[in-house]
Simulated assay, not measured.
Amino acid sequence: MIRRFPKLHAGRAKAIVSEWKGLDADALKQQSRTLPEIAREKFAATGIRKISADELATFRNQIEDAATSAGYPAKSLAVRQQVDTAIAVRLAQMDLPEGEMLRPEVWTWIAVHLMPHIVHWRFSKDTGEVKEERYLGILQRNALGRLWLRGKVFDRGEEVEDRWGLVDGISEDATVAILERTSVAGDWRLARVIGEAWLDAKRNGMAADDLLRDAVIRARISFAITELGTYNDEDLKTTIEECIHVALARKVHSLTN
């Protein structure tokens, strides 16, 4: 779906979201059934063809179908994790234009106008409150933008049999630690290899979530000395695994002294 998506700036989104106090996911879902007039929405001035209202409705339906197949609207932690994975994979498979999808304002429009009910279901507290950043935050914090990024970055490629194993296996904490660090998230190959190293560490019984942030800092220091382009994926992974083991040794030392 190579189309130009509408944008919604944070100030306008904030005003809309502020009017939703007291509404639950069901009410927001009904509200999203009628799409805003596409002709009145803000698009980039030039570029690929604008997406139509029908195409936006299809896009929304595909995401809702992926969520429903994974257990939505049940509210257990396991279902939320399964829905995250299902949506991330579906978004990554849609062939969405990366230039458009890297714009936070695009995901703000999608979260506010197309799928506010999904955002509310995923991130509402017991009080019904949802942090504004889940609608209008940066890409890594937007409830749906973060899943597109996760699917794209951790996609192993069509030639790999277990293509989505990393998307499915990586934890929310690890995803945040990797993708919210701009020096890592800016290099998708590096981010993916760090994810693979994390997954191996987890399989080997390490407290990988606790070690990852320290390991990523050490890896970036190492890669600041040597150009990343000189590393193949295996070399990258070896270096990152070494950083994880150093982080583990430091943690053990701090606990025993």
Rank of each mutant, 00 (worst) to 15 (best):
A197D: 02
A247G: 06
W148Q: 07
I16N: 06
W148D: 03
T127C: 10
N204R: 09
A39F: 12
P116L: 05
R192T: 02
E41G: 01
A111C: 15
I217M: 10
A78D: 11
R213L: 15
A219K: 01
N257A: 14
R220I: 12
W20K: 00
I217G: 11
C243D: 03
V216G: 04
L149Y: 02
L102C: 05
L166Y: 00
R60G: 07
A39C: 09
W107A: 05
D155C: 07
L102N: 11
G151N: 04
A247N: 00
R156K: 13
S183W: 04
R203V: 09
A70K: 02
M115G: 08
L228Q: 07
L8M: 15
A207K: 13
D26P: 03
R4P: 06
D209S: 05
A219L: 15
M101N: 04
Q82H: 09
L149T: 01
K42W: 06
G151F: 05
S32E: 03
L56A: 06
L212M: 08
H253L: 13
D95W: 05
F154R: 00
R203E: 12
I87M: 03
G137E: 00
L166F: 03
M115A: 09
R213C: 09
K50H: 02
D210C: 12
L248H: 11
K131Q: 09
D155F: 02
F5C: 08
I244N: 03
T34S: 06
A15E: 14
L56Q: 03
V252L: 14
W164G: 06
D209T: 01
V246C: 12
T182N: 13
L91K: 00
R146G: 02
A39G: 13
A67F: 06
R134S: 02
C243F: 02
V153W: 01
I63F: 07
E64M: 13
I225G: 07
S183Y: 02
T256A: 14
L28D: 00
S76A: 11
A185N: 02
H9K: 13
A215L: 10
R33V: 07
G22A: 03
K21R: 12
I16W: 03
P97F: 01
F223I: 08
V112Q: 05
E37S: 15
N61W: 09
T108P: 11
P104G: 01
A224S: 15
L255T: 07
A208D: 03
Q82I: 04
H117D: 09
K42P: 10
A177G: 03
